[in-house]
Amino acid sequence: MANFNEYHLNPEEFPFLNNFQEKWKVIRDEFTSFIKQASTEELKFTYDVLGPKSKTIKAKGDSKYSAFGILFQGLFIEEYIQLHQIQYPDYQTDEASEKALALRKTYFPNLAQVIKQVNLLNEDIIRNAYFGTFHPGLDIKLHVNYNPHMNRGYLGLIVPEGDVAMKICHDKLYWHKGEFLILDHSYPHCPHNYTNYDRTVLVVDFFKPDKPRAEVIQFEQEQVAQRMQDNPYSLGVFGKSDKAKEEDFIKYGLAHQLEWDKALGV
């Protein structure tokens, strides 16, 4: 029996996530089919354009975290690119938007349909939806995601056996295939993958249902504007405020990580 608290939340409290969970195998198969079938050019474009980039969150060693998705701040990726008129080194805005739309329709129609259904019935509660892969050996420094208006759900898609986990405050939590792990990411956390295999989840960020909707929308708009000004390739997901403070390491019993976190820098 899982122990839930203020930062590890019970998925049963968020029934709108059942739509994703019921289709988890279909969503997983869309991801694996894309990885296998996409051309080199499509893969490059995907990780260049569809993946949220962070200037703050760092990893120990050479292992990487890769991510790409189709929904950001409640908009499908092609709409988000157009709204913010994002300029890329290798793609014009219109070209990037068109390519993103084509990829979404070709490879992720079922995921897109689930998002549409959930948001139609729940006042656009889903804000971000993207695939996150921890490659073998990954060890991410302690950080926060300063999104007090949202919770973050991880739907397990490809989860190897072994030590691939999320350390958050005083807990070490594990992902499971076909199940959601729901966290309040405003608490300090540091995930890792000490297995020899990739771990992939669908990250689903959603508004906290108990917060007034007008209030959280206003906060999101202000936050995204600041994040996009600082780093347009963040897609509004990450920002400068995600850096953990030194007192976080001490308060949550993670002081042993402080030295190598300092060595990694900002």
Rank of each mutant, 00 (worst) to 15 (best):
T32F: 09
T32P: 06
F34W: 13
F34L: 07
F34C: 07
Q37H: 11
A38F: 08
S39V: 06
E41Q: 12
L43N: 01
F45G: 02
V49F: 10
P52W: 03
P52E: 05
K53S: 08
S54N: 13
K55A: 00
T56W: 07
K58Q: 13
K58P: 06
K58T: 10
D62I: 02
D62E: 15
D62N: 15
F68R: 02
F72W: 01
F72E: 00
F72G: 01
Q73P: 00
G74E: 11
G74Y: 09
L75I: 00
L75K: 13
F76W: 05
F76P: 05
F76H: 08
I77V: 15
E78V: 05
E78K: 12
E79I: 05
E79C: 04
Y80G: 02
I81D: 02
I81R: 01
Q82M: 13
L83A: 08
H84G: 02
Y88D: 10
Y88H: 13
Y88F: 15
P89W: 00
D90L: 09
D90W: 11
T93W: 06
T93R: 04
E95W: 01
A96F: 03
S97E: 03
E98D: 15
K99E: 10
A100D: 02
L101I: 10
L101H: 06
A102N: 11
L103D: 03
L103R: 03
K105T: 10
Y107R: 07
Y107G: 08
P109K: 12
N110F: 13
A112Y: 06
Q113F: 06
V114I: 12
V114M: 06
K116M: 08
K116Y: 12
Q117F: 02
Q117T: 12
Q117I: 08
V118R: 04
N119K: 01
L120M: 14
L120N: 15
D124H: 09
D124T: 00
I126G: 01
R127Y: 00
N128S: 11
N128Y: 14
N128C: 11
A129C: 15
Y130G: 06
F131T: 01
G132D: 14
T133M: 03
T133V: 00
F134P: 02
P136W: 10
P136T: 10
G137Q: 12
L138H: 10
L138Y: 12
I140K: 11
K141E: 14
K141L: 13
L142E: 11
H143C: 04
V144I: 15
V144N: 11
N145D: 15
N145Y: 05
N145F: 01
Y146W: 11
N147F: 09
H149A: 14
M150C: 10
N151P: 00
N151K: 06
R152K: 08
R152I: 10
G153T: 11
Y154P: 03
L155C: 06
L157V: 05
I158A: 04
G162M: 04
